[in-house]
């Protein structure tokens, strides 16, 4: 049975970027990526998307909230 190598590469993308592929799968993904520019671009996009989402979603708490949390501490007797 022949499989579409790009579809297979897509399946491996999330585990690849999460570093949970086996060494053999990793090597397989890298072989395909070395030959296939569209997949390489899509992987790079996914990597930068993750960083971008992380940064966009990172919201600092307000100093007021920080103070409220400190005030919740149980006073020493």
């Amino acid at each position: 049975m022949s499989i579409d190598p790009c579809a297979h590469c897509e399946e491996m993308m999330q585990p690849y970027l999460d570093h949970v592929l086996t060494d053999a799968e990793m090597a397989e993904a890298e072989r395909h990526l070395a030959d296939c520019e569209p997949c390489r671009r899509r992987y790079r996009f996914e990597e930068s998307l993750r960083v971008y989402v992380r940064n966009a979603a990172a919201e600092q708490m307000t100093p007021q909230l920080r103070e409220k949390l400190s005030a919740l501490r149980i006073p020493l007797e």
């Binding site: 930068s48 971008y52 966009a56």
Partner: peptide, 14 residues
Amino acid sequence: EDRVVERLSQDDIV
């Protein structure tokens, strides 16, 4: 690819 992602705004993501 690093620029493509910039088509999305922070609001889009949130």
